[in-house]
Amino acid sequence: MNALEGLAALLLVAGSSFFLAGTVGLLRFPDALSRLHALTKADNVGLLLICSGLGVLAGSLQTAGMLLLVWLLAMLAATVSAHLIAGRALADDTPELPGEQDDTP
């Protein structure tokens, strides 16, 4: 367990705790918007920490570059998705999804 593996372990555990925070927020928060907030913020930081932990473990720059690309894209996707979903949740007069009420078998 040299220093690098120690650092990686630390980053991985921190990342996991952020994912935990995101999930707790998702389950406990009262309405959709606050859940959205929890999910996008916490999970993304969690992903960053895990990616950096794996980057340290992998040791090759090419892998680290790939991890960085994945994280950047995840963040971009999360922000735009959150924006759209929030827009939909606010504008949507019917809280239910179409087809909710008809419960097609």
Binding site: R35, L36, L39, N44, V70, A78, I85, A86, P95
Partner: peptide, 29 residues
């Protein structure tokens, strides 16, 4: 579980976000 039971439409759509981050982390690990 939240996505499945979540009352509002936005909760359904969270599943896409959830899979944008958690599953990606699993795959990288």
């Amino acid at each position: 579980w939240r996505v499945y039971t979540g009352p509002s439409a936005a909760d359904r759509m969270l599943s896409a976000l959830l899979f944008g981050s958690t599953t990606v982390a699993i795959l990288l690990l």
